[in-house]
Amino acid sequence: MPSETPQAEVGPTGCPHRSGPHSAKGSLEKGSPEDKEAKEPLWIRPDAPSRCTWQLGRPASESPHHHTAPAKSPKILPDILKKIGDTPMVRINKIGKKFGLKCELLAKCEFFNAGGSVKDRISLRMIEDAERDGTLKPGDTIIEPTSGNTGIGLALAAAVRGYRCIIVMPEKMSSEKVDVLRALGAEIVRTPTNARFDSPESHVGVAWRLKNEIPNSHILDQYRNASNPLAHYDTTADEILQQCDGKLDMLVASVGTGGTITGIARKLKEKCPGCRIIGVDPEGSILAEPEELNQTEQTTYEVEGIGYDFIPTVLDRTVVDKWFKSNDEEAFTFARMLIAQEGLLCGGSAGSTVAVAVKAAQELQEGQRCVVILPDSVRNYMTKFLSDRWMLQKGFLKEEDLTEKKPWWWHLRVQELGLSAPLTVLPTITCGHTIEILREKGFDQAPVVDEAGVILGMVTLGNMLSSLLAGKVQPSDQVGKVIYKQFKQIRLTDTLGRLSHILEMDHFALVV
Rank of each mutant, 00 (worst) to 15 (best):
K97S: 13
P21G: 02
P41F: 02
K30I: 02
L210K: 08
K269I: 02
L220E: 02
A60T: 10
I261N: 02
H22V: 15
C275V: 14
P138S: 12
R182L: 10
P21A: 07
E201G: 13
I143Y: 07
K82R: 09
P41S: 10
G205M: 02
H66P: 08
A24C: 10
A237R: 04
W43E: 06
I76K: 14
K36I: 15
L210R: 04
N113G: 10
E9L: 06
E4M: 04
I142Y: 02
N212T: 11
H66L: 11
T257F: 04
K269D: 05
P138K: 10
K82E: 15
S123M: 02
P6M: 15
K75E: 05
K25S: 09
G20L: 11
D234I: 05
K25D: 13
G274C: 02
I80H: 02
L268F: 10
V206S: 08
E104N: 09
K271D: 02
S202I: 02
K172Y: 02
S202T: 08
K271M: 09
A237V: 13
D179Y: 11
E213K: 11
I188C: 02
R190L: 06
P70A: 10
A226G: 07
A69T: 10
Y223C: 08
R196G: 09
A114W: 04
D234W: 02
R190N: 08
G139A: 02
S175K: 08
R132S: 14
C165G: 09
D140N: 02
K75R: 02
P12S: 10
Q243V: 09
S63A: 10
S254T: 07
I142T: 04
A24M: 11
I166T: 15
K271P: 05
W208F: 07
E62V: 07
G26V: 14
D221N: 11
R125E: 10
G85R: 10
I152C: 04
A114H: 09
P2S: 12
E131W: 02
I264T: 09
L124W: 13
F99S: 14
P74I: 07
E176R: 04
E62M: 11
C272L: 09
V10S: 13
S175W: 08
T235H: 02
I127R: 05
A183F: 02
T146A: 05
T236G: 02
S19N: 05
A207N: 02
